Amino acid sequence: MVIEDPKTNKLIEVEKLPDGTYKVTIYDKKTGEKKTITMSKKDLEKLLKAL
């Protein structure tokens, strides 16, 4: 799943891993910076609600 946040000009890509956690990659379209973090479903839901 890919989500675009027009306010921050970032793309957020979410991928479910076999162990039940989620790999979240955040791309900054302005700088080209890429950050990848792994989080639980509960933390991911908090992140998505904040957008």
Rank of each mutant, 00 (worst) to 15 (best):
G32Y: 11
T21R: 12
E45M: 04
T36Q: 15
L48A: 01
N9P: 02
M39K: 04
T25P: 00
I3L: 04
E45V: 06
G20L: 09
M1A: 13
M39D: 00
L44A: 05
K49R: 04
S40R: 10
V24Y: 01
S40A: 09
T36G: 07
Y27L: 03
L11A: 10
I37M: 08
D19N: 09
K29W: 10
I26R: 05
K23S: 08
I26K: 04
K49Y: 07
V14C: 03
L44T: 02
K7W: 04
L47M: 15
L48D: 04
G32E: 11
D5R: 00
S40T: 15
I3Y: 04
K29A: 10
T38I: 10
K42M: 10
T8H: 10
T8C: 06
K41G: 12
G20D: 09
K30A: 09
I3K: 00
V24R: 00
T25Y: 08
V14M: 15
L44W: 13
T25C: 11
K34D: 06
L17N: 05
D5W: 02
Y27R: 02
A50S: 13
E33Q: 03
G20E: 14
T25L: 06
I3G: 05
I12R: 00
K35E: 06
L11R: 13
S40E: 08
K35T: 12
E4H: 04
V2L: 02
K23P: 00
K29Y: 10
K49A: 14
K34R: 08
I12T: 08
K30P: 15
K30L: 14
K41E: 15
K49G: 14
A50W: 03
D43K: 04
L17R: 06
T38Y: 11
L44C: 05
E45Y: 02
V24I: 04
L44V: 15
L11V: 10
E13D: 02
K10I: 13
S40D: 13
I37S: 13
T8W: 05
Y22T: 01
E33N: 08
D43Q: 07
E4W: 06
G20H: 06
D5T: 01
E4D: 05
K30C: 12
K46Y: 11
K46P: 08
I3D: 11
T21I: 14
G20I: 00
I12K: 01
E33I: 10
K29I: 07
L11S: 04
K23G: 06
P18H: 06
K42D: 15
T31Q: 12
L44E: 00
K46E: 15
E4V: 01
V14H: 06
L47A: 04
K42H: 14
L51M: 10
V24G: 04
K10Y: 13
E15K: 11
L11M: 14
D5I: 03
K42P: 15
T38L: 12
D28K: 00
T31F: 05
T31L: 05
K49C: 04
D19T: 06
E4I: 02
L47Q: 01
T38P: 12
L47E: 02
I12Y: 13
K10M: 14
Y27C: 02
T25S: 06
T38W: 07
I37L: 10
M39G: 06
Y22H: 04
I12W: 12
T8M: 03
V2P: 11
A50P: 10
D43H: 06
P18L: 07
P18W: 07
P6H: 06
G32T: 07
Y27G: 08
K16L: 08
G32I: 00
K35D: 15
L51T: 11
T31P: 04
I3V: 09
D28Y: 01
I26G: 02
K30T: 15
E15A: 06
